[in-house]
Amino acid sequence: MNMSAVWLFLKGVAMGAADVVPGVSGGTIAFITGIYGELLDSIRSINLNALKTLFRDGPQAAWKAINGTFLLTLGSGILLALVSLARVLHHLLLHYPVLLWAFFFGLIIASCWHMGKTIAQWRWQELLALVSGAVIAAFISLASPTSIEPTTLIIFGAGSIAICAMILPGISGSFILLLMGLYEPVLGAVRSGDIVLLGTFAAGAGLGLMLFSRVLSWLLHHYEHTLMALLTGFMAGSLVKVWPWKETISTRVNSKGEIIPFIQQNSLPVVDDMFAVAVVLMVIGALVVLIMERVAVSHK
């Protein structure tokens, strides 16, 4: 495996890690690391034409047509992160939420700056898209979670919806699952290896990904700056969800019998040692974005 493949695999790991945490999107990582456009175009290329190429020119030509090596390498990194980091991030979210949120808060602020500077000219269209994206993301972030019975059809539909959010910078697929009351069942299935539930979720995600990636790819090629402004707004609005300091309004018992927060509202921080550590982690999160940006440029 050459170094470019290793870097692509690591980008997949970063995307997968981000997707596990409610409020953070793997699409944000894809954009920061410079693979967002290629990712959308590669997913869009999986279509009937690729199937015709398979029968007409053989597997090698079809694999090249769908950019298979790119998708396999990136997907392997995402899958590894989902399987290996799900337990770790869940533990941090349960026991050290302020510190984990602080890290991602800094990461998202820097991501907003990174994405915003790609827009060469701010016209009224871009400003309107920015504000609209921020309002939509903030509204979603402030919505109260619900509880839905995880039937096969519901899990399939949740996969279709969540994957659309996961490839949108600023809209977290994990948080969409949390709003639907399905975050714990899906994360629990990852930890326990529930093949049936994960297979159903993956099938729904595959369908959603095929359809939604085509829309996003078309917008990226025809209305790039307006789309970038909208996505920047999505990320800015998601800061409402990622704000580290929260007051718990109500709790619930998860599948392991643990009491966890259910409904929370943002609050002002208490200036103490934990506050200082949180600020340091915010800075580290911002630096991670700058480092990923540098690495992405140097490995193009």
Rank of each mutant, 00 (worst) to 15 (best):
M3L: 12
S4F: 10
W7T: 10
L8R: 05
L8N: 07
L10C: 14
K11W: 11
K11I: 15
G12N: 02
A14R: 00
A14V: 13
M15Q: 12
D19M: 10
D19C: 05
G23F: 06
G23R: 02
V24S: 00
I29Y: 01
F31Q: 01
F31I: 07
G37N: 13
S42C: 05
N49K: 14
N49F: 10
F55S: 08
G58W: 00
G58C: 07
P59H: 08
A61V: 11
W63C: 08
W63K: 07
K64Q: 15
A65G: 08
A65M: 09
T69F: 11
T69G: 12
L74M: 05
G75K: 00
G75D: 01
L80T: 11
A81F: 01
V88A: 12
H95N: 10
P97F: 04
V98Y: 02
A102W: 02
F104I: 08
G106Q: 00
G106I: 09
I108R: 00
I108F: 06
I109N: 01
S111K: 02
G116K: 01
G116A: 14
K117D: 06
T118P: 01
A120M: 08
W124I: 10
W124C: 07
L128Q: 06
L130N: 09
L130C: 11
I136D: 08
A137E: 12
A137R: 02
F139N: 10
A143E: 10
S144T: 15
S147E: 13
I148Q: 13
P150F: 09
G157I: 05
G157C: 13
G157L: 12
I161P: 09
I163E: 01
A165E: 05
I167S: 04
I167F: 03
L168N: 03
F175I: 04
F175S: 03
L177M: 09
L178F: 15
L178N: 05
G188A: 06
V190Y: 00
R191E: 11
R191A: 12
R191V: 12
S192R: 03
G193D: 05
G199M: 03
F201H: 04
F201Q: 03
A203D: 04
G204T: 10
G208C: 06
S217Q: 10
W218S: 14
H221A: 14
H222G: 12
Y223R: 14
T226A: 15
L227E: 04
M228F: 15
G233I: 05
G233C: 03
G233P: 00
S238V: 07
S238H: 05
L239K: 05
K241M: 04
V242R: 01
W243N: 01
P244T: 13
P244G: 14
E247G: 15
E247C: 12
T248K: 00
S250W: 05
T251S: 15
V253A: 09
V253R: 00
V253Y: 01
I259C: 02
I263V: 15
N266Q: 07
N266R: 06
S267R: 15
P269E: 10
P269Y: 06
M274G: 15
F275W: 12
L281N: 09
V283D: 09
V283T: 12
I284D: 06
G285I: 09
A286C: 06
A286Y: 01
V289A: 04
L290G: 11
M292Q: 02
E293L: 08
R294G: 12
H299G: 01
K300I: 08
K300L: 10
